[in-house]
């Protein structure tokens, strides 16, 4: 029996340092943002969620991507970060 070494083709550091996702201490009084990815009917799903939170007394706002596969522009990201406590969005079809 002989032996030869071969190299591993997958990336060395696929995973980065694990971080905790920040959580809200409570829902009451929080501002919730929604981000529509423009896929057909995704706006309706988010509207259903948005109505729920609005009826619960939360301040809500709907943002829209420029186009589904295009990353959200940085100014929009910053606006959501600065003005809202949480953001709900969708991926896929």
């Amino acid at each position: 029996m002989a032996s030869i070494e071969v190299l591993n083709p997958i990336a060395t550091s696929v995973k980065k340092t694990t971080n905790a996702v920040s959580k809200l201490d409570q829902i009451e009084g929080k501002r919730i943002a929604f981000l529509d990815n423009l896929k057909p009917q995704s706006d309706q799903v988010l509207n259903g969620l948005k109505d729920f939170f609005a009826h619960s007394g939360n301040e809500t706002a709907m943002f829209r991507k420029i186009d589904t596969p295009t990353p959200v522009p940085e100014p929009v990201v910053q606006e959501i970060k600065q003005k809202y406590h949480a953001v709900i969005t969708g991926v896929g079809d």
Binding site: V6, S13, K15
Partner: peptide, 23 residues
């Protein structure tokens, strides 16, 4: 939005870059 779902220990998941020995 309020409840934590899994424990997060802060450790990375770096995979070792090792050669594979084939007999």
């Amino acid at each position: 939005l309020t409840e934590r779902t899994i424990d997060v220990n802060g450790e990375g998941g770096v995979q070792e870059d090792e050669a594979i020995s084939v007999n």
